[in-house]
Amino acid sequence: MKTKLLYHTNSFTYECTATVVAVEGDDVALDATVFYPGGGGQMADRGMITWQGQDYPGSVIAMHKRNDVVWHTLDYPPPSIGTEVVGSIDWNFRYQMMRTHTALHILCGVIWKEFGVQVTGGQMYPDRARMDFAMENLDKERINYIEDKINQAVEADYPIRVYSLPREKAFAIPDLVRTKINLLPPEIAEVRIVEIVGLDLQADGGTHVNHTREVGHIHITKTENKGRINKRLEIMLESSL
């Protein structure tokens, strides 16, 4: 059993028709889904699953991915196996996550290009995001420099490409994995690549916009010292483009 991950091929897909292939309590597995289940610091999608004859929609209140199957937890008794359903995500939330995720890749790409330091952690929230770097110096001058550079990358409107490569070919690319620890499980044969053409190229499983200008202006709102060689930057995006 395997769920077709529609968000992997097109992050802008917000609705799909699918068939229930398994039910466990209030959890349902579908043969295909537009819902991103969370991971890599990106929050899981929100939304609804509806089916014929239902008077009101079942909200998806939690998600998890187990092996190759995405499970959707409903706040309503789930439909039976074989039922055709419609999955619809909260598009405004998804698009915010897409903009935020791409913003973090811009930040990561600029810092790698300028200082050659690796990522030690990261997390997205509904209104902000943070990323940690194996960096020793993060004074006010450097923060201002980084903010200028990341917004220059936004304005450059670099195109963003998403594609997959065989594992061996992917890992022949220098610096493909920017995290200090390689988080890619050894059983993954195909590696999904997110490339900001002209700036950054990384292994990544999340959702992204198509061009950097879609991200909008990025503000570095907070910095923290998380260790002698570990610094945290928190960012926020302007609410409207």
Rank of each mutant, 00 (worst) to 15 (best):
residue 132 D to P: 02
residue 48 M to D: 13
residue 41 G to P: 08
residue 131 M to F: 01
residue 104 L to S: 13
residue 97 M to W: 00
residue 210 N to S: 13
residue 157 D to Y: 00
residue 206 G to Q: 01
residue 129 A to T: 06
residue 47 G to R: 05
residue 4 K to G: 08
residue 202 Q to N: 15
residue 170 A to C: 00
residue 149 K to Y: 04
residue 32 A to F: 00
residue 3 T to E: 10
residue 22 A to S: 13
residue 78 P to T: 06
residue 221 T to Q: 00
residue 143 I to T: 09
residue 8 H to L: 07
residue 113 K to G: 12
residue 28 V to R: 08
residue 142 R to A: 02
residue 222 K to N: 15
residue 127 D to W: 01
residue 85 V to G: 12
residue 239 S to K: 10
residue 224 E to H: 09
residue 170 A to H: 06
residue 225 N to D: 15
residue 33 T to N: 05
residue 59 S to M: 06
residue 241 L to N: 14
residue 162 V to K: 11
residue 204 D to L: 07
residue 13 T to S: 12
residue 196 I to T: 08
residue 21 V to G: 00
residue 96 Q to C: 09
residue 40 G to M: 05
residue 109 G to W: 00
residue 88 S to M: 11
residue 111 I to G: 03
residue 205 G to Q: 07
residue 114 E to Y: 02
residue 149 K to E: 13
residue 96 Q to V: 02
residue 116 G to E: 11
residue 91 W to V: 02
residue 132 D to T: 00
residue 21 V to R: 05
residue 75 D to I: 12
residue 9 T to N: 14
residue 17 T to S: 13
residue 167 R to V: 04
residue 60 V to N: 04
residue 39 G to S: 12
residue 126 P to L: 01
residue 185 P to I: 02
residue 64 H to I: 02
residue 194 V to Y: 12
residue 24 E to I: 01
residue 223 T to Y: 09
residue 16 C to T: 15
residue 158 Y to G: 06
residue 143 I to P: 01
residue 160 I to K: 07
residue 180 K to S: 07
residue 219 H to M: 07
residue 165 L to Y: 04
residue 78 P to R: 14
residue 222 K to I: 00
residue 179 T to Y: 12
residue 43 M to Y: 00
residue 104 L to N: 08
residue 155 E to S: 10
residue 196 I to P: 05
residue 86 V to K: 15
residue 193 I to S: 09
residue 61 I to W: 07
residue 117 V to F: 09
residue 106 I to T: 00
residue 203 A to S: 14
residue 47 G to V: 00
residue 182 N to H: 13
residue 165 L to A: 05
residue 58 G to V: 05
residue 145 Y to E: 09
residue 205 G to N: 12
residue 27 D to Q: 08
residue 183 L to Q: 15
residue 33 T to G: 03
